[in-house]
């Protein structure tokens, strides 16, 4: 099993519903977020292009955060989901330094927190909160090892990119372009 997410940058309107849904679902403290939307403007008027991206932890295959964790609190769950065990985390900040996507933050309670791909929902067969609420249905979540899954098909048929692949992390969030 290899969970991954594909996000269609051509369909995304940047409404930030995914951000709010995540904050509600996961009780993210005010002033922090596990996912966010970036807007990249390219070109100069009148030839301007905007790319909207809903970003979060890339649940990297080669995750530097897991490698540098001194206690094993950062670990990889079945399906390749990168998680932090709160009661093992000492809050040293190494994983925050190690993440090229800056997807982790220090929770006010001390431990490090990040996107979990809503593992509590995924285990029940639901989709992550951000995917479930997307009004333009621009996000796909599923198992890359399953040849018939929606995400496998969408990645087969569309051009895509991932963020900072040169960091050697093998990210598992794909942006359809």
């Amino acid at each position: 099993m290899r969970y991954a997410m594909a996000i269609d940058t051509l369909k995304c309107v940047g409404c930030s519903d995914c951000v709010v849904a995540c904050q509600m679902e996961n009780n993210v403290p005010i002033g922090f977020c596990r996912d966010w939307v970036t807007e990249t403007v390219d070109g100069s008027y009148p030839n301007v292009e905007i790319e909207l991206r809903s970003e979060r932890c890339n649940h990297c295959d080669n995750s530097p955060c897991v490698r540098c964790c001194p206690t094993g609190a950062s670990h990889i769950e079945d399906g390749g989901i990168v998680l932090v065990t709160h009661h093992k985390c000492i809050g040293c900040g190494a994983c925050i330094q190690a993440c090229p996507y800056e997807a982790r933050y220090s929770h006010p309670e001390g431990y490090v927190d990040k996107c979990t791909f809503c593992i509590h929902r995924v285990r029940k067969g639901d989709k992550p909160a951000c995917v479930a609420v997307c009004p333009t249905k621009c996000m796909y979540f599923g198992d890359l090892d399953d040849p018939n899954s929606e995400i496998t098909n969408v990645l087969k048929n569309r051009k895509f990119k991932s963020l900072a692949p040169e960091a050697g992390t093998n990210p598992q969030i794909f942006y359809l372009i």
């Binding site: 951000v19 970036t38 330094q97 800056e102």
Partner: peptide
């Protein structure tokens, strides 16, 4: 010309705009 700006709630102390988790 290339410009990038954060638009959503990404305003995390010690991470945005610069990472500064180690003092």
């Amino acid at each position: 010309m290339k410009e990038e700006l954060f638009v959503s709630g990404r305003n995390i102390p010690n991470i945005d705009p610069y990472l500064n988790i180690w003092h």
